[in-house]
Design a protein around this nucleic acid. Structure first.
Lengths: 124, 124
DNA sequence: GATACTGTACTAATTAAATTAGTACACTTT
DNA sequence: AAAGTGTACTAATTTAATTAGTACAGTATC
């Protein structure tokens, strides 16, 4: 389900979070799906259960999953998921835009970067 | 010239780099200006000279400054600076755009975020 | 040449954060 | 009761950033 990139110097729990978010948002993990248990996921990735626990805990805090003691961790509702992730991306986008403007780039220049980079995804 | 934010959990050398980049690109530090020596900057910020050395070394590697042994570190040419920073930001922008598209956002939606956020900077 | 700056390189010690290790306890299902 | 689940907690380890200290080379000035 997940594979780790050890070249990446970000913390493991963060990589796990990002990968799970992607799978959830894309629909590979539908809403209310039960995620692998903390222990089994740890075995699968050959890392410590505490690290998974941390990832799950953060994901729950952010609203991506919900957990039921004794039962497991489950994917949150689809609508919720998409909104959460879109908000995250918009946040990032705004940060970059502000940085670009500090450099004196005008909106039209920024937008042209988007258009020039984007090819063939419009009708997807 | 620089002040550190200890709440920020990014490495100090990275904060120093970003702040200097900003000062250089904005023009507060014109091209060929001599930067504070490794040792004096360290005293000013109450941190270790090695940390400044690392920041300067990285800045040179990235092309923002050039150093002359025995003389000091100096701000690179203006044209160079702006291009470097703009490339950085465009890189970041493209990453965010790609993430946004994965979520199914169309270019028009992304662009509308930019326009809605940007107010009053068009004529700056 | 001597002095006092500058950059640069290097090793060792310290600090802080992530990760691991191990244990314990509560809840659910069978 | 047994076997799974989540959760909390402390302690040890590992890793990266930072500090500490020293050394050496180039520049400028006297």
């Amino acid at each position: 389900m997940i594979s780790l990139n050890f070249k990446d110097k970000r913390p493991i729990y963060e990589q796990v979070m990002d990968r799970l978010k992607e799978l959830m948002v894309v629909g590979a993990l539908p809403e209310n799906t039960q995620l692998p248990s903390v222990r089994s996921m740890a075995v699968e990735l050959s890392i410590n259960p505490n690290t998974i626990q941390r990832a799950y805990g953060e994901l729950e805090r952010q609203g991506y999953i919900y957990s039921i003691k004794g039962k497991g961790n489950f994917v949150a509702e689809n609508e919720r998921l998409r909104d959460l992730k879109i908000d995250e991306v918009k946040e990032k986008l705004i940060e970059v835009i502000e940085e670009a403007r500090k450099l004196g780039l005008r909106d039209e220049e920024i937008i042209s970067v988007i258009r020039q980079h984007g090819e063939g995804r419009e009708r997807a």
